[in-house]
């Protein structure tokens, strides 16, 4: 997908995950940011997409259009707990596909880090 210009909304918009992450963190919540860093095949969300998660499992945004968000939230809460970043991979080739695969047949790698 060509993304020469970003149409993700302005940084004050509630749909802007990075603005949400900043606001949550400044409000005193523990926050992790998950980012799609690589895709293969027909991945539903482009590289650079974000999911923002707090320590209670609240989240904003999307890394797969709903397919694997549940699993990412669980891992993100571990990242918040440990403070160590994690690389996740999802796809049909993965054995986790049974539980949380991408039904579209694509594969994605998601980097999850804590906002320090």
């Amino acid at each position: 997908m060509e993304r020469g210009m970003d149409t993700s909304s302005g940084a004050n918009d509630p749909g802007d995950e990075l603005a949400v992450a900043e606001a949550w963190k400044k409000a005193g919540r523990d926050v992790a940011v998950a980012t799609v860093v690589e895709t293969w095949g027909s991945a539903p969300r482009p590289v650079g997409s974000h999911l923002v998660i707090d320590d209670e499992g609240n989240f904003e945004g999307s890394v797969s259009g709903g397919c694997v968000e549940g699993a990412v939230v669980t891992d993100a809460m571990e990242v918040i707990e440990s403070g160590r970043a994690k690389m996740l991979e999802f796809g049909v080739a993965d054995e986790t596909a049974w539980r949380v695969g991408l039904s579209c047949g694509g594969r994605i790698r998601v980097y999850v880090e804590k906002i320090a």
Binding site: E2, R3, G4, M5, D6, T7, S8, S9, G10, T35, V37, E38, P46, V47, G48, Y111
Partner: peptide, 23 residues
Amino acid sequence: SGKSGTIEADGRTLFMNVHVPPA
């Protein structure tokens, strides 16, 4: 190009998230 992606450069693996102004 405005495209985000992962690259190998100078012996490191780097992710570039490109933010160009919203249309």
